[in-house]
């Protein structure tokens, strides 16, 4: 656990640096959202790649662990790991013939993402370190893609955090968070599982529609009772007038 300890040593060093702050409550929401984001990305990559790769299998394990994890930091760490791994699989499985071009596109994206983070006064130390790593791999497109995919997913995650925290996030978890990511052992089995997951997602009703239906039923019910009372009184009058 050498590097884990080394990373912790950065904590003391950066104690007094000024940066964006996040509350534990916000962090809980963020962890859930990032885990969902990672799960969706893993599913996206899964639908696009034809082979069952070891790395994608690993990403699926990370996502499942992230969805089940209760500790906030662990949930977030597992989700980011899954997200980054899935992105790497996407790059290597679909862009193999265009690695040079993809590396340049990733570098451009990286510049935009760093600019956005810097403008928001958020530049986490991990971003700085991973960008330096990418710098070292400039003449090797394959390694550069690997380093940039990791860096960009990390930055995209922090931007996602910023948006969630700076605008009022929804407190209702997405129905998507209630489904689990398939863990693959065999290609054919897992394909079926993914189909099931997405079908469930698409058939779930948004809670807004349920609320509307409930309110509609209540209002209509009240009006029905009122009308029934009017009808009863009319019937009574009709009976009286006949007698």
């Amino acid at each position: 656990m050498k590097t884990a300890h080394m990373w912790m040593s950065l904590r003391d060093y950066l104690k007094n640096t000024m940066n964006y702050s996040i509350t534990l409550e916000e962090l809980k929401q963020v962890a859930l959202s990032i885990a969902t984001l990672a799960r969706d990305t893993v599913n996206y990559v899964y639908t696009l790649t034809t082979s069952s790769q070891q790395d994608l299998h690993e990403a699926m394990i990370w996502v499942d662990k992230a969805m089940m994890e209760e500790n906030t930091i662990s949930k977030l760490a597992l989700a980011i790991e899954a997200y980054g791994t899935a992105y790497n699989v996407l790059i290597y499985s679909l862009t193999g013939n265009y690695l040079n071009a993809v590396a340049k596109s990733l570098l451009k994206s990286s510049d935009y993402l760093i600019t956005s983070l810097y403008s928001a006064n958020v530049l986490p130390v991990s971003v700085i370190l991973y960008r330096e790593l990418a710098q070292a791999y400039m003449d090797s497109p394959e390694s550069l893609c690997y380093a940039l995919a990791r860096l960009n997913t990390e930055m995209f995650t922090y931007l996602f955090i910023l948006r969630l925290v700076s605008t009022q996030p929804s407190t209702t978890p997405s129905p998507l968070t209630q489904t689990s990511t398939p863990v693959i052992n065999q290609t054919h089995q897992s394909t079926t599982t993914v189909v099931t997951t997405i079908t469930v997602t698409m058939t779930l009703q948004p809670h807004n529609i349920m609320v509307i239906l409930l309110v509609t039923v209540i209002i209509t019910g009240l009006i029905a009772v009122l009308l029934a009372l009017v009808m009863l009184s009319l019937r009574k009058r009709a009976t009286q007038s006949v007698t």
Binding site: L14, T17, I73
Partner: peptide, 30 residues
Amino acid sequence: LLELIGIHASVESMDINNLSVLVGSTSRVF
């Protein structure tokens, strides 16, 4: 190490740098 990270993470609010360090460390433990 996970316990230690948990102790550092149990604060009311945290700086993004701190968060990034804790996340980096936790990833490596996992």
